[in-house]
Design a protein around this nucleic acid. Structure first.
Lengths: 197, 197, 197, 197
DNA sequence: AATGAATGAGAGTTCATTCAT
DNA sequence: TATGAATGAACTCTCATTCAT
């Protein structure tokens, strides 16, 4: 009862994105051919082109959708003053956003060379760069000392790459995320905690 | 007397590797065609095949050469007991090794999806995995608590990825490396320093 | 009172033809895709197929419409004896007909290779061929000498191709047409003027 | 006795051009696929790409080769003052050049729409345009009257298009060429013959 | 009167690789 | 120590056309 077996007003566009996302993650963007996507879906290559103008367009659609929370986070971050407290909040939210968009960021991570000259590559890198900027932004006019900057970097690297490199560990993913975030926070705190202590 | 006008005992093999390395870094492994390498060198594609059995072979040769210090480091690490002190030493040496082999690791980083099904990809990942294992190895029989493991990860992520993501910063690269290492050390120290303090 | 807001008795068929004619002229028949026509019109490709059975059919409709005057001219010509006087008349009328159907003849001219195996191509060429035959037709039983035939050809070539190659010249098109016709007439006249002299 | 059956240092490049020329003439440039050329030659498509960078490149090579005499003629023409006598000479030489390069000019003629946006199309049209300019060039500072210009056009149209439209006629091609040229000369002469008479 | 969805066929092009010389 | 010539497989993309709704 109920589930339409083949969908009337066509959910094909949806299904293309899901299939593509899976293949882009497991096989890589470049190595995934449109033939593969089409075959796995049981349609012809031409059908893909009915729904998307180019191969890159499929990834763009995916990026627009999955990357939205990060975009919102960046927008939020730009409105806040670059206090330590706000950076903590930023990292905290980012750890959630990057987890939710993990497949997308994995694609970016593992296909950087390929995506380099694609528009979508630029857009993805800008997203990452924007977060990085917010994390590094100086609280006052003065430039922060190198060590402080590095600490900011380290905290972000921990959250970002930890999400990917630790996901093969056994155990509760949520616990891992919490632990990563906690360590990142400590790195952040030691920034002036060290100088203050 | 002196400069042979046209290659002493064929340095072509050498030159192929250098050219390939440069192109693999800037354009990516997959996107660099043998035609490109050959053209930039002023030889024919067939010449490449005289010196290397396959395209992958070029990368393999590069990896054998540039990766040697890391291999030695791994060998050294496996002989040491997994004390915190040794991990500090490991990270310290690693920060030098990864800096020296930066182009190679960048290629690995930015072409993961492509290299995934290549033998050389496996070998490169094993190298990274081995370092990771040494850093995570438990000091005694018991499993370390998650937070401790994450701290280890964080320290390694800082050294490893920091080397790449920070290299666009202005300033002295060596100072950056020192700062990265220092922060990594602190992360490492807070492991039981926190519980001890 | 009364401009219907959205097509009275569907002028879509009309509009398709106009759009197609424009594109066939500027981009060529083959290079104009049905997608282009549809997009420029703001309808779907399928709509074109509601009004025309095939792409060729659009051109056929165009040809039937624009080519009518030439067809009538041919019919007229076939009823006249092939006197020099009638040829003069024929050329005169042709210079008007080809001007009025210029876009159509331009399409034929510039897409000959493409139209070669299409039915409509054959029909278009037959039209041109028929005019040519009328111009070359011998006045009496005997075959005309080569030079005379060539002169007939030359007169027709002048009117026909002159219409297209001269239309980038500045100045009054009608004056140009008159001049072309006049020169063509002189060529025709010198036919027996030479033999008579 | 003696003809190498398969050629050592490869005459394939040559053969590709011949085959392509033939197919471009009979089937048209666009409608001739590289697969067709390759099959007719008994090689693979990739072999074509070893010898020519693109499909257009094949036509370009053909144009460079066959168009040379016309280029030389243009160069010659540009050095002469635009006297009637020189125009006679120009037309005379042109009738030979266009005959020799007939297949090339036929391709240009019958595929204008297709070649329009190709570089080679531009170059081919420039060649034709250059001849046209030489024929129309004013002898003195004053602009020639329209009728004179039209007469110049007519003479050129006669030689140029006559070469193609008359080549289906039975009889000696050389006689036809001579007749065309003669008629063209008369058209040219009547230029001031009319005003003088 | 028109749309949305899809297809099959084919295009030009690029690639890593091979092999006789 | 290299080259010239070629291949087979794959790729992204476009097109005219169809058909249920």
């Amino acid at each position: 009862m109920g589930t339409t077996p083949r969908a009337r007003r066509s959910d094909t566009r949806e299904r293309i994105q899901q299939t593509a996302l899976g293949l882009f993650v497991t096989r890589g963007y470049e190595k995934t051919s449109l033939r593969e996507i089409a075959e796995e879906l049981g349609v012809t290559k031409a059908a893909l082109y009915y729904h998307f103008k180019t191969k890159e367009d499929i990834l763009t659609a995916l990026s627009d959708r999955l990357g939205e929370p990060v975009d919102e986070l960046i927008a939020w971050g730009r409105e806040q003053p670059p206090t330590l407290e706000n950076k903590r909040e930023l990292l905290s939210r980012y750890s959630v956003a990057v987890r939710d968009a993990a497949p997308l960021y994995r694609i970016l991570q593992e296909n950087q060379a390929t995506l380099r000259d694609l528009d979508i590559g630029t857009r993805l890198r800008e997203r990452v760069g924007a977060v990085s900027q917010l994390v590094h932004a100086a609280e006052d006019g003065e430039d922060a000392p190198l060590e402080t900057l590095v600490r900011f970097s380290s905290a972000l690297l921990t959250v970002h790459f930890g999400t990917f490199t630790l996901d093969e560990m056994p155990g509760d993913p949520e616990a891992r995320r919490a632990a990563l975030l906690q360590v990142a926070m400590e790195i952040l705190d030691s920034t002036d905690g060290g100088s203050a202590g």
